[in-house]
Design a protein around this nucleic acid. Sequence first.
DNA 1: ACGGAATAGATGACACGTCATATAGGTTGG
DNA 2: CCAACCTATATGACGTGTCATCTATTCCGT
Lengths: 156, 156
Amino acid sequence: MDGMDAPRWLDDDQQRAWRAYLRMQAQLGAALNRQLQAACGLSLADYDVLVHLTDVPDGRLRPYELQRALEWEQSRLSHHLSRMQRRGLVERQECADDGRGAFVVLTEAGREAITTAAPGHVETVRALFFDALGPEQVEALRQLTTQVLARLDAAG
Amino acid sequence: MDGMDAPRWLDDDQQRAWRAYLRMQAQLGAALNRQLQAACGLSLADYDVLVHLTDVPDGRLRPYELQRALEWEQSRLSHHLSRMQRRGLVERQECADDGRGAFVVLTEAGREAITTAAPGHVETVRALFFDALGPEQVEALRQLTTQVLARLDAAG
DNA sequence: ACGGAATAGATGACACGTCATATAGGTTGG
DNA sequence: CCAACCTATATGACGTGTCATCTATTCCGT
């Protein structure tokens, strides 16, 4: 799959685009993380977990459902839930239907954290990202990322 | 800076674009990391460090220069260099001019690793990313990421 | 009913990142 | 000259991510 013979490099336009993308990706992620951390002590990962739990009746999901929704590795989720449990953001419950299974449940503290966090986070995403772009650019980005995702899915 | 009153949510187009971006960002990064790891036991971070060292005469830089080039936190670089040193990819040398200072030097193993890794890595970037896009899309991406970067720099 | 395969989840080891702090050497105004 | 300060770098603690592996169930074909 790799041992190529004549390495085709990226052309100048591709280089520029790639570098800019990598820089933006790193800085944007860092900025969003800092904002969330400062505003309410959550990480982006915490935020994503809490959003998914909030979106569901009873704030309660099987870990494997959460895993598929987040597209995380199983052990990443398991470790992360342990840490969030330690901080009181979620709880684990046994699952009556399936002896192997469990439930992750949003606690009151968890629900409050995400409720507090969401407006500021969305505002930051807008301020740092969408406010810099016109609607055509947003559409172009959606289109282009979707195409790359299709490619990634195809590659497995 | 955050405690907004009436939270303005993202509109549907923005939501779609944002979700697609986050998904692509995560999956692309993971795929590139896996490829590098499988092909030559390097991480993306290793790769970036080695590229910068390769681009310079003697393969030798002061850590603070490397830090600014990579836009990494200082302690991240220091820790990472320690790990790379342990694996024999770089060495540390004392700096005669400045008693506090040091040099990071590419070892032979380091130079060989990056030489081996680069073609496959570039090929993967092309295969997973640029092959999915037309030239106008590449230009649109460059433009859009550059605008966001300007915004991020301004927010500092 | 049973034995093997698949599924749900947890865990330990270890790489990676960040924050706060430590150390030591330069720089400079008085 | 030297005290206050700034710069270069390292480190320890701790949160995060991955891989390999372990356990307990459930499922399924015979």
